[in-house]
Amino acid sequence: MLEGKVKWFNSEKGFGFIEVEGQDDVFVHFSAIQGEGFKTLEEGQAVSFEIVEGNRGPQAANVTKEA
C-alpha cells in the first residue's frame, strides 16, 4: 500500500488525483474508494491505496481514508 494526499477531487464528476511524494500524481475514480455511503475525498486528505494499470495508465485502487 502507498500513502498520499488528495490533490483535488471533483465529487460531481467522481474523480480526482492523489499526490505521492517522489512520484507522478495518481488518478482516482470514486468507485475505488472503500467504505459505505457517498464516496468522495477532500483536498489534502491523507489516503492509502494501491496502484493498478487502468485503460489510460496507472490509477488508484482500494483507496482508504486515513484517520
Rank of each mutant, 00 (worst) to 15 (best):
T64G: 10
E21L: 11
V20M: 12
Q45L: 12
F27E: 02
E3F: 11
G57M: 05
Q59E: 11
F49P: 00
S11E: 07
I33E: 01
E3C: 05
W8P: 00
S31R: 12
K39W: 06
V47A: 02
N10S: 15
E66T: 15
I51C: 05
L41S: 02
E43Q: 14
E12N: 12
E66S: 09
N10G: 04
Q59M: 14
S11W: 13
A60F: 01
M1W: 07
K13I: 07
V52F: 07
G22C: 05
P58R: 08
K39P: 09
V52K: 14
L2P: 04
I51N: 03
N55I: 10
D24K: 12
I51W: 09
E3D: 11
R56N: 08
V63D: 01
A67S: 15
G35Y: 09
H29L: 07
I18G: 00
S11K: 13
G22I: 03
G57V: 04
G54M: 11
V26T: 07
K7F: 03
I33D: 01
D24Q: 14
G37K: 09
N55S: 12
E43D: 15
M1R: 14
I51S: 04
S11M: 13
A32N: 11
S11F: 09
E36T: 10
E12R: 14
Q45T: 14
E36L: 14
V6W: 01
F17C: 04
A60M: 01
F49W: 02
G35P: 04
L2Q: 14
E21C: 06
A46L: 15
A32V: 10
F30C: 04
V63G: 01
S31H: 15
E50C: 05
Q34P: 08
D25G: 04
V47C: 04
V20K: 10
H29E: 03
Q59D: 02
K5Q: 05
G4I: 01
G57W: 07
A32Q: 07
A32T: 07
Q59K: 07
A67Q: 12
P58Y: 10
E19V: 13
E43I: 13
N10F: 14
F38D: 14
V63M: 03
V52Q: 12
T40I: 13
K7T: 04
T40R: 06
A32P: 01
W8L: 04
F27C: 02
N62Q: 08
